[in-house]
């Protein structure tokens, strides 16, 4: 009698496991969708992706997203995981601007062409941030100071060869100045601590980690490397306005591995569109210090392609310190 019960129990468990495994696939999505974020929890990429997904769930019948963070290697492993997953719509991922850079740095063969873009919720521009009592109040004054003191101004970045470091090189190239590059591998929060504490002089980085200090008046932002002025910092001019066409943004895009069927892709894109256009989503982003974008589908893909071309040129022309 007991044997029978055990046998029945065993087959129930086995059956349940098999069923979940098979994922009796009905209409998309009929199962949880895994989203791989190639950055640590709490950062800009993670926050914006999770935010977008939360609001997408509200606009997408039956969808449930499970986010996993895989920040190893600056995000390479996470992005590769997404690219290599089955394009069945149940594994999505976020990719960041580094995708357009790693291929030129010999770190991977992966390019943006391995993905189908869904949406791009964030594109944080590099912002020139200095201490409030610094002797320069505009981009040009800062540049002049750097010209008088070559190599003395210490500019923080989030890692050698990473995006903010490249932004610094671009500024050096454009204005003909030399500054000292100081990497802070643990992210922009460390840079914020260093500038506030007076250990370095400036940084070119995503302003969201510095917003609290900027609003409190301990730090000031002199310029942003974006197409238009930021809603979060309306008095700060863009580098473009000041006559230097420098646009460097750390974007993160929600993507699917290439080959996802039209129907599912369109469904995801529509959900993302509805989410990003909703007031709640925009408010959420602003509250986190993130400037909300609304690139969907092909627009997002275009940004990825444009930046790919830009970094191709960058890595061919700029000599990085060995």
């Amino acid at each position: 009698m007991c044997k029978k019960i055990t046998a029945v129990l065993l087959s129930i468990v086995l059956g349940a496991a098999l069923l979940t495994g098979c994922g009796a696939k009905g209409a998309y999505p009929s199962d949880d969708i895994e989203v791989i974020v190639p950055k640590g929890a709490g950062g800009g990429t993670d926050t914006s992706t999770r935010g977008l997904l939360t609001y997408m769930e509200k606009n997408f019948e039956g969808a449930k997203f499970n986010v996993t963070n895989n920040p190893d290697g600056g995000g390479i492993t996470g992005m590769v995981q997404t690219a290599e997953a089955d394009p069945d719509g149940y594994v999505l991922g976020a990719v960041t601007v580094e995708l357009d850079m790693f291929c030129f740095q010999g770190k991977t063969e992966l390019t943006y062409e391995s993905f189908d873009a869904i949406a791009m919720p964030i594109g944080a521009p590099a912002a020139l941030i200095v201490q409030a009592d610094a002797p320069y109040n505009s981009i040009d004054e800062f540049v002049a100071y750097c010209q008088e003191n070559p190599g003395a101004v210490q500019v923080g970045n989030s890692g050698a060869g990473a995006i903010w470091d490249i932004a610094t090189y671009l500024v050096e190239q454009e204005y003909g100045i030399t500054v000292s590059h100081i990497p802070y591998p643990n992210g922009t929060a460390d840079i914020a601590a260093a500038i506030t504490g007076g250990h370095i002089d400036a940084t070119l980085a995503d302003p969201s980690s510095f917003m609290t200090q900027i609003e409190a008046g301990t730090l000031k932002c002199l310029g942003v490397m974006s197409e238009d002025r930021m809603t979060l910092l309306p008095e700060v001019p863009t580098f473009k306005e000041e006559g230097h066409d420098l646009v460097v943004r750390a974007w993160a895009a929600l993507v699917a591995p290439k080959g996802l069927d039209e129907e599912s892709l369109t469904a995801l894109r529509n959900a993302a569109k509805a989410a990003m256009e909703s007031e709640e989503c925009k408010e959420y982003f602003l509250s986190q210090g993130i400037e909300p974008l609304d690139y969907i589908g092909d627009d997002a893909y275009q940004v990825m392609a444009d930046d790919y071309e830009m970094y191709k040129k960058v890595f061919e022309t700029i000599e990085f310190a060995e």
């Binding site: 770190k107 890692g159 990497p183």
Partner: peptide
């Protein structure tokens, strides 16, 4: 990846080890 120099160390061309 060495974050201070940007170089890859002991990765032997393996995606796992790059991380």
């Amino acid at each position: 990846i060495d974050a201070m120099t940007g170089k890859m160390r002991f990765t032997f061309d393996s995606t796992y080890l790059i991380g």
